[in-house]
């Protein structure tokens, strides 16, 4: 009897905002691979504003926010890169 369930919830909402962003941000397009909004345990990115996203990313980078996958992915980003990434993910023009 299979014990793992890997079927997506039928009501999941796809994260589409990344596609309206600056086409220069290839990194932003990788976020929905995990944070696409269909997962129960991994938060989607809907509803974040630019500042909240940037704050969270900086906290992961600086070790102030514990995490599993995220700290290792953002450790090398500068404040300016985080600001551009957050803007791209939130679907607004890059500052």
């Amino acid at each position: 009897m299979p014990i793992l369930s890997i079927r997506a919830p039928a009501c999941c909402v796809l994260l589409l905002c990344c596609w309206s962003v600056s086409a220069q941000q290839s990194l932003a397009l990788s976020c929905p691979v995990c944070h696409g909004g269909s997962a129960a345990s991994v938060p989607g990115l809907q509803g974040y504003d630019v500042d909240a996203l940037a704050d969270r990313l900086r906290a992961y980078r600086d070790g102030e926010q514990p995490g599993t996958a995220m700290p290792r992915l953002v450790r090398a980003l500068s404040d300016a890169q985080i600001a551009r990434l957050a803007a791209a993910v939130a679907g607004v023009d890059s500052p």
Binding site: L4, G36, S38, S41, T68
Partner: peptide, 20 residues
């Protein structure tokens, strides 16, 4: 508990990367 959490992430990652 963290290994179990990563197992849940693994399941959700699989669903999401296929959808993406």
């Amino acid at each position: 508990a963290t290994r179990a959490l990563e197992a849940r992430y693994a399941q959700d990652w699989y669903v999401q990367i296929n959808r993406d």
